[in-house]
Design a protein around this nucleic acid. Structure first.
Length: 233
DNA sequence: GCGACAG
DNA sequence: ATCTTGTCGC
C-alpha cells in the first residue's frame, strides 16, 4: 500500500496546488469495482489543541453495514488547515489508520469532498489515487460549486455544478428536512453511482453508516456508553 | 480589489 | 476541526 501521498512535495502551498492538478488527471470517474463486500469509513479528529492528528478507519460489512473492526492512528499534526489543501493535513494519518485494518476495503467513504474541489482533488479523490482504491467523498458543506433548488424530502438530489456548468457532484438530502450532504466521486466511481451508494448506506441518521461511525470515533473520546454500543468489540 | 472558504 | 449544557424538535 502506497504510504507516500505527496511524492516529492517541498511543503509549500503553491507546489501543493500544482501537485493536485497533476494527480487530478489520474482520477477515474467511472465505476470500476465489483460487488463490494467490505466498506470502510474514514475521518480525522484532533487532540492537544490540534498538536495531534487522530485518524480513524472503520471496516464494515457491505451487506449488513455492521462494523467489523476499526483502527486509530495518532501522529503529530503536520500542517495547518488551509481551504483546498485538506488532504495534505489529514492524509498521512488517514493512510496509517487504513493500513492497520485487518482487511482491505472494496470501497472507502471519506469525510470531505472528492472531485467537488477547486482543482478536482479533494481528500477523497487524493486518497483514491494514492491507494488505488475506489473512494467516495461525503461532505457536510460545499467547498466550491453551486446548485438549484432541492426538495425537502429524503432522497431528493440535484447536481452540484462548477463555474462552467460542469457536474462535479450531487447535493443529496439523506433525510427529510435535514441539511443536504455534498457527495462526489473520489476515484473509480461514477457521478451517478456515488449518491446511490451513499443513500444505500443511510439508516437512521443524516450521515451514511461508514462516515458516521468513523466520525464518532474520531471526534468523541473513547469509553462513552454510546461508543460501547456502536462497537461491541 | 472583494468575498468564499471541506475539516 | 475544537472549546461546551441544556434544550427543542422529529
Amino acid at each position: 500500500m502506497n504510504s507516500d501521498p505527496f511524492a516529492d512535495w517541498d511543503g509549500s502551498p503553491t507546489q501543493a496546488r500544482i501537485l493536485q492538478r497533476q494527480l487530478a488527471r489520474q482520477v477515474l470517474l467511472h465505476d470500476d469495482f465489483g460487488s463490494p463486500r467490505r466498506y470502510a469509513g474514514v475521518d480525522v479528529g484532533f487532540e492537544e489543541g490540534g498538536e495531534i492528528t487522530r485518524a480513524v478507519a472503520v471496516l464494515l460489512d457491505a451487506e449488513t453495514l455492521q462494523p467489523l473492526a476499526h483502527a486509530v492512528a495518532r501522529i503529530p499534526t503536520v500542517m495547518p488547515y488551509v481551504p483546498g489543501l485538506l488532504s495534505f493535513r489529514e492524509l498521512p494519518a488517514l493512510l496509517q489508520a487504513l493500513a492497520e485494518l485487518p482487511e482491505t476495503p472494496d470501497l472507502v467513504f471519506c469525510d470531505g469532498h472528492g472531485i467537488a474541489h477547486p482543482r478536482r482533488l479533494g481528500i477523497a479523490a487524493h486518497l483514491g489515487v494514492v491507494t488505488g482504491l475506489p473512494t467516495i467523498g461525503v461532505a457536510k458543506k460545499i467547498l466550491t460549486g453551486h446548485h438549484g433548488e432541492l426538495a425537502e424530502t429524503r432522497g431528493s438530489q440535484v447536481d452540484l455544478l462548477d463555474r462552467e456548468g460542469g457536474v462535479i457532484g450531487t447535493v443529496l438530502r439523506s433525510k427529510d428536512r435535514v441539511r443536504p450532504l455534498i457527495v462526489s466521486p473520489g476515484h473509480r466511481v461514477g457521478l451517478a453511482t456515488a449518491p446511490a451508494l451513499v443513500m444505500a448506506c443511510v439508516r437512521r441518521h443524516r450521515l451514511p453508516e461508514p462516515t458516521r461511525l468513523a466520525d464518532h470515533l474520531a471526534s468523541r473520546r473513547q469509553g462513552s456508553a454510546a461508543t460501547q454500543a456502536l462497537f461491541p468489540f
